[in-house]
Design a protein around this nucleic acid. Structure first.
Ligand SMILES: [Mn+2]
Ligand SMILES: [Mn+2]
Ligand SMILES: [Zn+2]
Ligand SMILES: [Zn+2]
Lengths: 146, 146
DNA sequence: AAATTATTTGCAACAAAGTTGCAGAATATT
DNA sequence: AATATTCTGCAACTTTGTTGCAAATAATTT
């Protein structure tokens, strides 16, 4: 039963990598799998822990870097100097991201969650400021911890 | 003329420190001075560079930590793993911050600016999510670089 | 203003996080 | 199956952040 449930994910993982012209390697598969399984965003450290001794730290760095470049994941800035990463929706491409959604950081469980359905509201800037991207990070208590 | 212009700032610096029950030391004075002079936010690294050999790295860490605890400065999360710090308005106290303003990060000059006059808009979260703080970071081209 | 007390600093010694070049391994292509 | 391409792990290194403690500095008391 475990074999069946993973199979569907495996196909998905394979597709994401090939679609982005990346060779399908163990580390990339495993890290993508982690993102797909996780309901929240992951910090570099989280991935290192979850992969254990499986891969070198350097490989994790480089994999995240490549995923970023390809638009497979996006970053979520945090106040604790530990940027989180989360999967992008399909529409995201190398240059152009479509993730103008709000992020929630739970102060209880520490989870960082993409609120895909909550759009970042517009904001009027003073004369001369030309915005290209807007990040909105809400912290508090998440649904689970409430 | 330089001596006069600094005198006013010196009084201000002294007041901030005493008002927060902090002993008035060279490092604290110097770092506060940097914040007052700078029109943008400062990363830990910026401060280290600007103070040169004057203080130990550890002192800079501890000073920023104390300023944070006292509500003298606030953090601005960034995607580059280098949290920026900026002065709080007077109304901020140890526990309670009043800095619900938008921050702007310029992709040209790299400056991070507090847009004190631009308030963070309200946002409606899904059921169960209890917000306590909202951060909004806009990146693009700033007024100066435009 | 000198002595006492309390606080802060710098140093040393670490730990953790991130970077780079390169040879060998794994993947993709022919 | 052979070759070309890409990726990974290792080593060696730099940068960033942490902690304990003695000496230095600042605040308080006499
Ligand atoms: Mn997201
Ligand atoms: Mn600010
Ligand atoms: Zn939670
Ligand atoms: Zn600028």
């Amino acid at each position: 039963m475990n074999m069946h449930s993973t199979k569907q994910t495996d196909i998905q993982i394979d597709h994401i990598l090939k679609h982005n012209q990346l060779s399908v390697t163990d580390s990339r598969k495993k890290i993508l799998e982690l993102f797909l399984q996780s309901n929240g965003a992951l910090a570099h450290g989280d991935i290192e822990k979850k992969t254990g001794e499986k891969f070198d730290r350097v490989t994790v760095y480089r994999t995240l870097q490549v995923f970023m470049e390809k638009g497979i994941i996006h970053t979520i800035p945090t106040a604790d100097n530990a940027v989180r990463y989360a999967l992008c929706k399909d529409e995201c491409t190398e240059g152009h991201h479509h993730d103008n959604h709000v992020h929630f950081v739970c102060n209880a469980c520490g989870n960082t969650i993409c609120l895909e359905e909550v759009h970042v509201p517009e904001v009027k800037l003073p004369k001369g400021f030309q915005p290209t991207e807007v990040q909105m990070i809400v912290s508090g208590i998440c649904k689970e911890c409430h």
